[in-house]
Design a protein around this nucleic acid. Structure first.
Lengths: 360, 360
DNA sequence: GCTTTTTGTTGACGCGCGTAAAAAAATATT
DNA sequence: AATATTTTTTTACGCGCGTCAACAAAAAGC
């Protein structure tokens, strides 16, 4: 039973306006500020749309009376709200947390109101979020879909009503644009590096990946290996949740225990799997690294925030979070300005960079 | 320059109603369903408030015509919205991501509309969020404040208008209740364990911690050590951001390099610092663990999602995320039902459990 | 100084729904 | 069957703001 302590709550009266009376609506603010309500309305929708001198008068009054328009009344009547929906598949993954942070900031700076949702890896949750989001009549939506688990029809229908830019995971022909990473390039580069510096890598992945990137990386690995004249070697582990570390750990412990790893170099489909695999290798007493005393080289993909703090630090491919966020937001803003429909669906893929650390 | 591909976007016409005409408002839905608008209004605010037979009629019509009330118009006029604000200090920390997930789910199940915000570790951001949140006229708010960086006045003022329950970090006498963890108990337990099984621990912490829990753990460590008849040993590292791993790594590398660690057993103020310290120890070639061949024992606090995948797996104290989330939400719902004001400010602290892994 | 152009004001209506009071209808009770 | 009770309908107003048209005032151009 938890500890409980009770105390008298403090009641603080926050500062009110000069006259002590709270202004309830734009009408009253118009009265005290000496500006007509329609002009105020114009100002709040775009401060630069009124003459500089009146703008100053309004802002002076605003300081004295601290009034703020009712957001529900605004959104109800506006042709278009300032809402921007941000939907990510799994917020407990720092990759998405980071990219969401970056997107949020940019939206706020542009005068929009970002609202963040996480599907928590569940299809039904994603559907519910899209349903809710529609009620908010967003000016635009940045959607990183679940991927394999997404209900294509639901996402399609959603995109019909709300201007949507997809990022991270693509769903073919859905949404007005896609921004992601160039998996063939990044995997190709990593495979080339690993082959050049040691034994050619096997590919460590989930048997039923939750994410289309995983499939693309799978194909990219095979084609890269074949391009270099090597036989692809796949290690597929069980698991279909978003707990990648656990999946990597369990699967890794099994293949290491069975001694069924086809190569002493392992390229993981993503960093979180690699972190799990590192833990499994540690448990099994296998030394990981590119030094001579090591039994295993492990590489990842994404340059996850945690990747530099693993033991040994993880060699990986960096995704440019900031660039993906920036481009996604810019694309959405263009879309919104052009009325919400794109003439062509643009797909933008960013190259990754090799991040050499000690694990491979 | 990123790769770009263009393709013609697919345009899909999502399903419309039987008659092909979209219902625009409750009035029209009343017309087609044969139910009066006020009754519909009642139904949407509480389906169980209308007679069973009419409820069935409404829900049948709802299936045929797929109408959904305008949420802005609803919130504008309701005495109280169904909005629940959730504010966490740093969403890129999986601890908060996890707890937010749990809270969100519970709110949805109770028929509320949770909206998640992250302060991203910045005071101004927290202030802005509280400002925005006020505009949403939330029925209640679950706030995990930044802590030391919070603007007490701003949070106080906010709590005056919106029923607020604090969790994780306490701010004395602010909000209607606080739910957190029992740091004296958990640190005491860990100190006792470490003393019993080896050299007494020094305490590894940030010099200027961002979080009040850190201060409580600091004091708890000192009192636990003194209680066992040992001299407290503090290791304080620089850094005041939320990038705890980096801070732990930098500070750890420094003290290890200087050989200034006062004990071979290190209790870290939280798991993320410990993860950074583990990485530093690895880099410096120090073997970590409780075995005989190890130079260092490292323990953490929180049982962070990553903690079981470090090398070696991290010995730590688990915080019961689910219990904290559950109690926080329950407390808020009680608060909302009782009109938003608590007679006494209840503080609830959950005990931690020792999680013995290999690092200490 | 006058005219053209920009900017603001006035007054009115609409958005979609909450809500209240009174009347009507449906159901329950005796 | 008559009465009491619950539920729904009717009617009407209000919420706070967007937006429009007609007009007035101010600024800019000559």
């Amino acid at each position: 039973p938890p500890v409980q302590v009770k105390s008298a709550p403090a009641r603080v009266m926050p500062g009110r306006d000069m006259d002590g009376k709270k202004i309830r609506n734009m009408e009253q603010f118009a009265a005290v500020s000496g500006i007509s309500r329609p002009t105020l309305s114009k100002y709040f929708n775009d401060p630069s749309s009124v003459k500089a001198s009146t703008r100053i008068r309004i802002e002076e009054a605003l300081e004295r009376y601290d009034y703020r328009p009712n957001i529900f009344a605004m959104n109800q009547n506006r042709r278009m709200t300032k809402n921007i929906g941000i939907v990510v598949p799994y917020l407990a993954d720092p990759f998405f947390a980071e990219i969401a942070r970056s997107i949020e900031r940019r939206c706020i700076e542009a005068g929009y109101w970002p609202i963040l949702f996480s599907s928590h890896g569940e299809m039904q949750m994603e559907i519910n979020i899209l349903d809710s989001l529609q009620l908010l009549r967003p000016a635009g939506v940045l959607l990183a879909p679940l991927g394999r688990r997404s209900d294509r029809k639901a996402v399609e229908d959603f995109c019909y009503d709300s201007p949507t830019v997809l990022f991270d995971s693509d769903i073919a022909d859905v949404g007005e644009a896609f921004i992601g990473s160039n998996n063939p390039q990044s995997i190709g580069m990593m495979v080339e590096y690993l082959c050049r510096t040691g034994e050619p890598p096997c590919f460590f992945e989930m048997k039923t990946p939750v994410n289309p990137n995983a499939r693309k990386r799978h194909l990219a690995y095979i084609s890269a290996m074949e391009g270099l004249g090597y036989e692809p070697m796949l290690v597929q582990v069980e698991g279909d949740s978003w707990e990648f570390e656990q999946i990597g750990f369990d699967g890794g412990a099994r293949v290491i225990g069975e001694r069924s790893l086809p190569s002493s170099t392992v390229l993981c489909s993503n960093d979180r799997l690699a972190i799990g695999l590192l833990a499994a290798a540690y448990e099994k007493g296998l030394r990981v690294g590119r030094g001579s005393g090591s039994a295993l080289r492990i590489a990842g993909h994404d340059d996850h925030p945690q990747a530099r703090f693993t033991c040994p630090p993880l060699t990986t491919v960096s995704q440019d979070y900031a660039a993906i966020a920036k481009r996604s937001v810019e694309t959405l803003f263009c879309l919104i300005e052009s009325g919400g429909r794109a003439k062509v669906r643009e797909t933008t893929l960013f190259d990754g960079n090799l991040v050499m650390r000690l694990s491979a």
